[in-house]
Each structure stands twice: as C-alpha cells, then as structure tokens.
C-alpha cells in the first residue's frame, strides 16, 4: 500500500510523517511518531482517552484519519507543560489526586484545557458536561471535577494563588 506524506504542526513544531490511508491520527501519534501520551481506550469515540486539540477543536484522535491533518495544527498532552513547568491543570490533578491508574488522565487534561480555553470560569455543571466525553473507571469523577475547578480558579486569580502558596 502506498503511504501518504503529511505535513502538519504538532505542539507548535512543524513535522511530517508517512501514514496509511485509513490509519487514524491516534495510531499516527503513537505508532509513527512515538508520542504515546495520547492513549487508546475504545477506538470508537466513546471514552475520550485519545483526546487532542485539532485546529482549536477538541476531538478524539481515534476518529480522525491521519491524512486529514495535512496543514493542520495538533496539540497533544506532550505539549501541555511549559518545559519543566506543569500546566495549572496538571498541578491541580496531582494535588487533588485526580487519577489512579492514569490511562484516562491525558484525555481528561486535554479536554479540560479545551474547556478552560473556551470558558475560563466554568460552573461545576459546565465542567461535568465539558468532560462528559471522557470515561474514568477509577476515580468516580469527583476529584477530577474538583481539580478542574481548582485549576480554573488558579488560572483566573493567579495573584490569590501565589499568596496562598
């Protein structure tokens, strides 16, 4: 089978790769590019473990064909921290013990980032709807929801947060 050459931007860096026509973006990230932070759960768009941000839209990378991302920009979990500085969502998840086995965590973090990019001060209900496309079989969700709300409050009141710590 001939492979397609695709050029795109991944976490701010221009990259290119070869993929099969029906290979998903998830498989491209993990199997062609070695970016294994993005997880495969269901492979059918139900669990959100493979969430990435594609041209500003939160999507399941298992529901995107690799060749589709030609010329587009992708953000994955690997691009979330700023070097050694964790994103406030990542800090909140650590402090709030918002994960146990951790397989769903990258997807939750990416979905939560997409939510806060769009709505920096969500209500609890908005958070619960915002991550309704992500499944977690360990935590019971409450710690995840609290951690997202905590990160939102840190990000919108950076001064208060600095004084408190």
């Amino acid at each position: 089978m001939s492979r397609t050459h695709v050029t795109c931007v991944l976490n701010g860096d221009p990259i290119d790769f070869l993929c099969n026509d029906y290979q998903t973006l998830l498989s491209v990230l993990r199997d062609e590019l070695g970016m294994i932070g993005t997880k495969e759960g269901c492979g059918t768009g139900d669990c959100g473990a493979c969430s990435v941000i594609l041209d500003g839209q939160l999507v399941c990378s298992c529901l995107v064909f690799g060749p589709e991302v030609e010329g587009r920009s992708i953000e994955t979990i690997e691009g979330m921290a700023d070097g050694q500085h964790l994103h406030p969502l990542q800090e909140s998840f650590l402090e709030g013990a918002a994960f146990q086995c951790g397989v769903c965590t990258p997807g939750f973090l990416v979905a939560a980032k997409a939510l806060l990019d769009r709505n920096p001060t969500p209500t609890e209900t908005e958070v619960r709807y915002g991550v309704a496309g992500n499944l977690c079989r360990c935590t019971g969700y409450d710690k995840i929801v609290r951690s997202i709300l905590d990160a939102a409050s840190r990000m919108s009141n950076p001064q208060t947060h600095k004084e408190a710590t």
Binding site: S51, A111, N134
Partner: peptide, 9 residues
Amino acid sequence: IGSDQIQGR
C-alpha cells in the same frame, strides 16, 4: 450530539 469531542467533528 455526542460529547464535546464528537461535536468537534
């Protein structure tokens, strides 16, 4: 329709 992820597509 679906989740935020699905609505992105």
